[in-house]
Amino acid sequence: MEQPPLIRLEEVSKTYRMGDVEVHALRGVTLTVALGEFTAVMGASGSGKSTLMNILGCLDRPTAGRYLLEGQEVSHLGTEALAGIRNRTIGFVFQSFNLLPRTSALENVELPLLYAGVAAAERHARASASLAQVGLADRADHFPNQMSGGQQQRVAIARALVTRPRVILADEPTGNLDSRTSVEVMALFQELGRSGITVVLVTHEPDIAQYASRVVTMRDGRVRSDVRREPRRAEPPPPGEPAAAEEALP
């Protein structure tokens, strides 16, 4: 039996009402993402890429069309069921990291497992493993304000990975990082792609998009182009680099 594609959008539309005006954020998007693909979604602001991400992330429901995630129709599921899917299947990475303040890196990473009902000992073990995977095993006890922007974003990626999701949705993950740490983060995403995790990345920077193996360009709520090509390999920064190079931007 053939495995269904990980993500399948069929003629998905999303319409918002803002007062008297109807805003068509998505006008019939059909898109298939296979397992392990590293896709960048590009587009100007207002092109519908954020709405697309919200729908892909099960944070929002389409007005029309079907969304099949791992072959399961999710566009009509209730709030509770969607929360469960977000918890198990999807990992989020945000532009502004969204780490809980005054909470250690380890505990930030544990957060999704808390809602998955994982017992404390296993939670610690998995969160530690996840931190090690992003190269921050030694920063487990640090608070977000003690870490650079790149480190914070890596903690956020570790948090997204800890539930072993099928897909990671990254919304402008490098928007608050300098170019050097951006490459570092992209290298991490490429590595995840090689280990079979699907990554969908929203960005408006072509520099960043070139690390993906597929670039979907959005415009006015429609897919304008969909190109697959050989990605540029993100060179991981040399080990032992000075800490000053990792200064946080904002």
Partner: peptide, 16 residues
């Protein structure tokens, strides 16, 4: 509010 949004994104149900 942002913390609540994040918790919901990583799988907290409204009841949680």
């Amino acid at each position: 509010t942002r913390e609540i949004g994040l918790r919901m994104a990583v799988g907290a149900k409204p009841g949680d």
